[in-house]
Amino acid sequence: AVTGSQTALLLRAFEKDRFPGIAAREELARETGLPESRIQIWFQNRR
């Protein structure tokens, strides 16, 4: 499950760019500790 702090970080990124590229998703994966594929799905679901 995604924690509150991970969600906050993802929401901030989403406000800046609703369609992040692979580099941005990989950076978010490093920052959150989540797999990049999970980040991609999160953005798809959020849109």
Rank of each mutant, 00 (worst) to 15 (best):
Q40V: 13
A29E: 04
P35V: 05
Q44L: 07
E36C: 07
E27C: 00
S37V: 10
L9S: 07
I41Q: 15
P35E: 11
F19P: 04
T32Q: 01
L11P: 03
R12F: 10
L28N: 00
I22P: 11
I22W: 10
N45I: 08
R25N: 02
A29Q: 05
R46E: 12
L11W: 06
E26A: 13
E15Y: 08
L28M: 05
K16M: 09
L34S: 00
L9F: 11
L28P: 00
P20S: 02
A24D: 09
R47Y: 06
S37R: 08
W42R: 02
R25I: 15
K16Q: 11
R46Q: 15
E26Q: 13
T3E: 05
E36W: 04
T7L: 15
F43L: 03
E36S: 08
Q6N: 10
S5D: 15
E27Y: 10
R18V: 04
A24Y: 06
G33S: 04
F19Q: 04
F14K: 02
L28Y: 02
A23I: 13
R25G: 02
N45F: 07
P35G: 04
T7F: 14
R30S: 05
V2Q: 12
W42E: 01
A1E: 15
G21S: 14
A23C: 15
P20A: 03
A24P: 03
R30P: 00
I41H: 10
E36Q: 09
V2T: 06
I22A: 11
R47N: 12
L11N: 12
L28T: 01
R30L: 09
W42I: 01
T7I: 13
I39R: 00
R38D: 14
I41N: 08
P20C: 03
L28C: 00
S37M: 11
D17C: 15
P35S: 15
E31N: 08
G4D: 13
A23H: 11
F19E: 07
N45P: 04
P20N: 01
Q44S: 09
L10Y: 00
F43K: 00
W42S: 00
N45Q: 11
I22S: 06
I41W: 11
L9K: 06
F14N: 01
K16H: 10
L9Y: 10
L28V: 02
R18G: 04
E26N: 13
F14T: 02
R18T: 06
T32R: 01
F14I: 01
G4E: 15
I39H: 02
R12H: 09
R25L: 15
V2E: 09
Q6M: 12
R46I: 09
Q6V: 13
A8F: 08
N45M: 11
F14V: 01
F43M: 02
E31F: 08
E27K: 13
F14P: 01
E15V: 10
N45W: 06
F19W: 10
T7K: 14
D17I: 03
L9Q: 08
G4W: 13
R30H: 06
T7D: 14
R38L: 15
T32E: 02
A29W: 02
R25S: 03
I41S: 10
R47G: 04
R38P: 02
T7H: 14
V2S: 04
R30G: 04
W42D: 00
G33F: 02
A1D: 14
P35H: 07
E31T: 12
L28K: 00
V2H: 04
K16N: 10
A8Y: 10
L11D: 05
Q44G: 05
P20I: 04
R38F: 15
F14D: 00
F14Q: 02
R25M: 15
L10D: 02
A1K: 14
A23N: 11
Q40C: 15
V2K: 04
V2P: 13
N45K: 12
S37D: 11
L11R: 06
E26D: 06
Q6T: 08
R12M: 10
F43R: 00
T3L: 05
V2G: 04
G21F: 03
L11A: 05
P20G: 01
R30K: 14
E27V: 13
R30M: 08
A24T: 08
F43T: 00
R18P: 15
E36D: 06
L34C: 02
F43V: 01
T7M: 15
R18E: 12
T32K: 00
G4Q: 14
G21D: 13
S37E: 14
G4Y: 13
P35Q: 07
A29T: 05
A8L: 10
E15P: 00
I39M: 01
F19M: 06
I41R: 08
L9W: 07
A29I: 05
